[in-house]
Each structure stands twice: as C-alpha cells, then as structure tokens.
C-alpha cells in the first residue's frame, strides 16, 4: 500500500528513556543502598544481606552471627 509522507520518519531505535525515568531509577537505587546500610544495624540478617557487598561476609564492627 502506497502512502504519502509529509515528513521523514524518526527512528525509535536507540531512543533513550526520558530523563525523569532515569532519575526515578537512580532514586530507587539510592533507596536500595540506604536499605542495605540500615540492615547492617540489625544483627544476623544484616550479615546475610551484606555478604554480597562485603565479599568476606564480615561487617566491620558487627557481632558475629550465632
């Protein structure tokens, strides 16, 4: 089917998300980071949660899990 076009089509490929979406994602990441820090103050669970970040599973200053 032929159709006339008044203007050149703009490709949607590699069109990045709007800045607001990126900022929302960054804010969500920041909340996650805060959550991780807070869990460090709650004993056993915090050791598990921070294992991935700390590498050796030890949180500086924390009492070892029983």
């Amino acid at each position: 089917r032929s159709r006339s076009k008044s203007s050149k089509r703009v490709s949607g490929f590699d069109m990045a998300p709007p800045a607001s979406a990126i900022l929302a994602g960054a804010a969500a990441a920041a909340v996650t980071a805060v959550w991780k820090v807070r869990t460090k103050m709650h004993g056993v669970i915090l050791l598990i949660c921070t294992r991935k970040d700390q590498g050796n599973g030890q949180v500086p200053g924390a009492t070892p899990a029983i």
């Binding site: 949607g12 490929f13 590699d14 069109m15 990045a16 998300p17």
Partner: peptide
Amino acid sequence: ALKNLSGRYYAGR
C-alpha cells in the same frame, strides 16, 4: 540480530 539488539532501547523502552 539478537546479539546486536540486546541491551538497546526502542522509543525509550
């Protein structure tokens, strides 16, 4: 195509 399209965006998604 799979290799080249992975990780890219279309219309912001």
